[in-house]
Design a protein around this nucleic acid. Structure first.
Lengths: 289, 289
DNA sequence: GGAACCTGTATGATCGATAATACAGGTTGG
DNA sequence: CCAACCTGTATTATCGATCATACAGGTTCC
């Protein structure tokens, strides 16, 4: 009967080792068990173990030395960018790193039902849809799909969208934005996002869905963002609030931030090994925040 | 040369359709193109398309009717649980839904380097490590790995950990917790987490890593949580703050929450079809928060 | 009823992933 | 130097995923 489409064994072992490395169970510098040992441990052939190690190697998680062994690579050099809740990269820009935006798609049309509902639009109303990719130091890290009601979208041009932050353009049109809701989740990379973010299909992605409202309560922007988790993550400081029976954590508002012990700071610009696919930009423009 | 371990084609098509469904591109009720059409569109055989649809069907994203077609299932019945930033499920509990905890592992030992560093421990100091699974209405949705310095862990028993929230036990030991930092990210399910959360290996997961500090700055708890994205997501309301040049989004503190338009509310308890694996609990206890 | 679509199911051929095995060459430590 | 490990590489065999094709049966609509 049904054979249950088991994912590739190599991938299974890859994920297992990857988890142990990331969880710190295999600290940087550790020598992994030899390929024959791993093969025996997981009851697979050595060829399969090698493929798993190849994947880890390609991601820079391990370093292989012929004749010597396979070692866990020092992870600290590939720490992801951290952004606070508001999804602001300001301190990165302060550090002199440049963020660019590439506009992949731009057009008008009818919104899907879910978008229309969350923007509170009447049936038949049209939206502007755009797809952008954000790069930091030339490396793509987020894939943004935005939907904006047509009457706002018409106040700026395609070129302006590629050059300025969308929220700025919206506010320039006379709309004031005050409230927003957002949800953070996880998903797998589909073909388009995978290509844009230079990933394999099926890689994990962080998602952020944000809907921005104007004071009257109508939605003015629907943002769906996909982030490479190895290059981006949400970070926040919490303080314990509330009275005895109802104690909980609340985000510590307002900089200065609490824990800046020089920990995840000197994020090196990624070694950019394997010089494949120079990511020829279709339309790239400097843009802040 | 290298054949690049392309993920299974069926999985590729599955992901593609899944993205379009979740993104709202294919609204609930829509009839998908026929299997022959999809096969042609993606240049694969019909058998492969069927396997992709099988996966979507198994996840409840589509519904197939012999002779009629394949339809996008009404997604609203499988909306994920929403938790606010502080990771509190209080309003769910208020709604009468029960959360249980299953303790999978408990023990003492030396921490990995990363854990030790984030807890600010001296070399040689030991930690208590525990792995728990949280269920809501009997369905697992999170996989928690916690590390606590031994001197705190010794103040409570294994049975207590299975019955009470960890932070409560820590505070009971005399430590006051005031600050914490946390990061949200995404990853793929490894074998253990996949088994515990009733998922396929390689499924996407939300991760939350939180380190809790006592006033003196020593870490007292390291929490690594994995969440099923289809059953859990982080949600927050934002307000626009800051002066002109420095406008940004800040979390809207303090309930009452802004957007409760009865949207993601009536989350039905999941149909629990396919009665396989009755999830026999090893050690299950009611627990709040 | 009947044409035209659909899903469900079965078949044998093909191709890639995996297994089992063998050997070459580097590294380490006695 | 040499024994004992390691990674790198190659070979052949097997098994599962995929393909191409065909047919059965349900649904829809004219």
């Amino acid at each position: 009967m049904r054979s249950a489409v088991e994912p590739l064994k190599a991938r299974r072992i890859y994920l297992l080792l990857r988890d142990r490395i990331i969880a710190g169970d295999l600290p940087p510098g550790t020598r992994l068990p030899g390929e024959p040992a791993l093969a025996a441990e997981h009851a697979v052939s050595r060829v399969t173990v090698r493929r798993a190690l190849d994947l880890l190697d390609k991601e820079g998680l391990v370093q292989r030395k012929a004749g010597s062994g396979t070692f866990v690579h020092d992870t600290r050099s590939v720490r992801p960018i951290v952004a606070d809740l508001s999804n602001v990269l300001s301190h990165l820009i302060d550090m002199g790193r440049s963020t660019d935006v590439k506009l992949l798609s731009f057009g008008y049309g009818l919104p899907s039902e879910g978008i229309a509902e969350s923007l509170g639009m009447k049936p038949g109303e049209r939206v502007q849809r755009s797809v952008r990719v954000r790069l930091i130091d030339g490396v793509p890290f987020s894939y943004l799909t935005t939907h904006v009601p047509e009457w706002i979208g018409l106040t700026y041009s395609e070129a302006e969208l590629a050059a300025r932050p969308l929220l700025e353009l919206i506010e320039r049109s006379g709309v004031t934005t005050e409230r927003a809701t957002q949800a953070i989740n996880a998903t797998l990379a589909g073909p388009e996002a995978a290509a844009a973010l230079d990933l394999e299909i099926g890689s994990p992605l962080l998602t952020l869905t944000r809907v921005v409202y104007e004071p009257a309560g109508r939605g003015v922007e629907h943002l769906h963002a996909l982030y490479r988790p190895d290059r981006y993550s949400f970070h926040m400081d919490l303080v314990r609030t509330g009275n005895d029976g109802e104690r909980r954590w609340s985000p510590a508002l307002g900089w200065p931030r609490a824990s800046d012990k020089g920990k995840a700071d000197k994020t090196k610009p990624e070694k950019n090994k394997q010089g494949d696919k120079p990511t020829r930009a279709k339309r790239t423009t400097k843009q802040r925040s």
